[in-house]
Write a protein that binds this DNA or RNA. Structure first.
Length: 255
DNA sequence: ATGGTAGAAACTCTA
């Protein structure tokens, strides 16, 4: 089965690209972040016409997550249990024989901001929840935009980014705490090319200059790591007209 | 030295 994640930065704008990508790659599951759509405006019919069911939790202007899949889903959750948060950043469901959790982790803005504190608090609550999810689901995939580059290989200029939001030491420590729950970064289970990133700023020709970060991840439990055959980043959509600033990440699981 | 680009929405905020 093919499991993918993509921060689309507005599903309204990116819908044609998402439909094209679904047709070309036929993932069993595609998790989306930053849909920026209220549920009433979700393009259910277009997605359905493409052969996919859709589960979504959105809001106007900001955030919003969705899971598109070829089979129906059950046991869906739209929030971290017990963590009160009006921002729509979480979607979990049992789909295609595994538990899939789609996350849009807060960006954090800058390390001295309230939003950075919110990011760390949010991640602490997520980690406590994911421990419980993993105890109940040995086949667990936690995917999405984590807004954290785990280590120096994941940053085009680690010296310049040291201490900055997305690469600060506290965020990187939290990412390790997340893995310590019992998850593996599927991308690093395999040999990978240098300068493999999933996000490039729209500004300053960052994509062409390979000035990116790897902040979108597919984390998988040990049981899924056993059957993971590949994890790749598809940079092609980033080359399109009016692209998202993120590229999709795809994992192949033999199950 | 604090830009620059994009999206949504409303003349600003978030990333």
């Amino acid at each position: 089965m093919r499991l993918a994640t993509w921060n689309v930065n507005s599903l309204k704008v990116r819908l044609p690209q998402v439909l094209q990508w679904l047709a070309a790659h036929q993932p069993d599951v595609l998790c989306l972040q930053e849909t920026k759509l209220e549920d009433a405006n979700f393009p259910v019919r277009d997605i359905r016409a493409a052969g996919y069911h859709a589960l979504f939790s959105g809001q106007k202007t900001y955030n919003g997550v969705a899971i598109l899949c070829k089979t129906q889903v059950v046991d869906a959750l739209t929030a971290i249990p017990g963590f009160i948060d009006p921002q729509k950043r979480v979607l979990a469901a049992n789909v295609a024989g595994l538990r899939v959790i789609c996350l849009y982790v807060p960006n954090g803005q800058s390390v001295d901001s309230d939003k950075y504190r919110y990011k760390l608090d949010w991640l602490a609550a997520a980690i406590a929840w994911l421990k419980r999810e993993l105890a109940m689901n040995s086949r667990l995939a936690v995917v999405g935009d984590f807004n954290i580059a785990p280590d120096e290989r994941d940053v085009h200029d680690p010296k310049a980014w040291e201490g900055q939001v997305l690469f600060s030491a506290p965020e990187r420590r939290v990412f390790q705490d997340l893995l310590a729950v019992g998850l593996k970064d599927s991308f690093r289970l395999f040999d990978q090319p240098d300068q493999a990133y999933t996000w490039w700023d729209y500004r300053m020709n960052a994509f062409k200059r390979k000035m990116g970060l790897r902040i979108d991840h597919i984390l998988i439990s040990d049981d899924l790591a056993q059957c993971c055959r590949a994890c790749t980043i598809d940079v092609e959509p980033r080359k399109a007209e009016r692209p998202s600033d993120h590229a999709p990440v795809v994992a192949e699981l033999s199950m």
